[in-house]
Design a protein around this nucleic acid. Structure first.
Lengths: 236, 236
DNA sequence: GTCTATATCTGGATAGAC
DNA sequence: GTCTATCCAGATATAGAC
């Protein structure tokens, strides 16, 4: 947190929020401790990593519904019976993915350090932070976006609420900038929606960016500058 | 075509390209004539309408994989055996949906009248036309976007190619405007991708626009104006 | 904690009557 | 052209040995 957001690089972000590797799977374990029969963290964490990453590989290529637990068993090397020691059901697995991602986003979004910044720095921190997070947790985002229909009503609702909240956070930043006299814009809600959509593209349209050869910092800068331009920053 | 694109309203678009009602289902029938056993167009057209619209309702709420043909049978009122007179298999149904949409888009995109316009009018025609089309054929677009993973490799490839082509068409229009001295921009590829993404939002984020109370012409104008602004039109 | 073997059921697909 | 009845592969989930 010390270096954020002064040093806006993906490496700094990685150091601040450890969203991958062992700490991530440990958090997955903690979140779903009750729902599984395995009690020993040491052994659980390794298998959870296998189960989740293989689910991403399978679901993000053929779809979660089309993926069978036999596929998952083969891919993870864990037997059918073994899998059920970690998940209550197939739906429960999808549900767990959504829950972990949502809680993680919630953590990062409530970072007080970002909330205290001025409009310009705050906008930059939100945009860069979100893209870095999309990048690091790409399979999680991709899964939740495309498999949303399979989730429970409550979870779909929660996912929508989260996007609304994100839009509002952008909008507030826009409005703060307008009040400060550095931004000028009419349709702030639509502009916020557009920025959100640009950010989502980073995990939804990987193939396109690969084709164009666009790298992450370049894209983050593009989103930031485009948003500023939409807000008529320095044009007045 | 006579009134397009001088009169850029969704009603004019509807009159020019008849993408709904009996003519649409007639085209569906023509496209898939060989793949089904029913030969009489009179009887087929009505049932095709039922099958496709019910598929959209079911698939767009619970997902295509999760929808069973028994669901579809109940919803359409056509028996299981009856369904198979119209489709070769469940996958074939999804494939047919993608094929019809792609051919329809291809027809509209190769409209010579649009190609002959100057950069500004052309941009407007592309943007408004695409949004209107997204709106009229909403369930088709939504289905193809979210069920793409279930399609064959060839069809996924074709869908990607179509988006690339659309981006390129926008990009060419940008470049033409730059050459004409009315636009000014650096990252034309990313700007085109952004406009494409804004257009896709119209069918991907219906709930958001409903929440915001944004109507179709308002959104079309927003996308058009934002794109122009990104291209620094009249800012120079 | 993990496996094998199995119960149970759902869903796609077809045969054949009408 | 449409329906009923049925086949059977493959899926989720569990029981019980190790």
């Amino acid at each position: 947190m010390d270096q954020w957001p002064q040093d806006i690089s993906i490496d700094a972000f990685r150091r601040t929020w450890v969203l991958e590797g062992e700490p991530l799977w440990r958090r997955v374990f903690d979140t779903h401790r009750e729902k599984m029969q395995i009690k020993n963290p040491q052994v659980a964490v390794g298998n959870l990593e296998k189960i989740f990453t293989c689910t991403f590989r399978l679901a993000n290529s053929k779809g979660f519904q089309a993926m069978s637990l036999r596929d998952l068993s083969r891919e993870t090397g864990i037997s059918m019976g073994g899998l059920y020691a970690y998940i209550g059901s197939k739906d429960d697995l999808a549900s767990a993915i959504e829950e972990v991602l949502r809680k993680t986003i919630d953590d990062v979004m409530s970072d007080q350090a970002v909330l205290d910044l001025g409009p310009l720095d705050r906008l930059k921190a939100i945009i860069y932070g979100d893209i870095y997070m999309n990048d690091i947790m790409h399979p999680w985002y991709y899964f939740c976006y495309l498999e949303a229909k399979g989730l429970s009503r409550d979870q779909r609702e929660a996912a929508m609420q989260m996007e609304i909240k994100f839009d509002e956070r952008l909008q507030e930043t826009f409005v703060a900038g307008i009040a400060a006299g550095i931004f000028k814009a009419d349709k702030v809600a639509l502009l916020a929606a557009n920025t959100t959509s640009m950010l989502q593209q980073w995990y939804l349209k990987r193939w396109k960016f690969q084709l164009l050869g666009t790298r992450i910092d370049e894209y983050a800068a593009f989103v930031y500058e485009t948003t500023l331009h939409n807000l008529n920053y320095q044009d007045a």
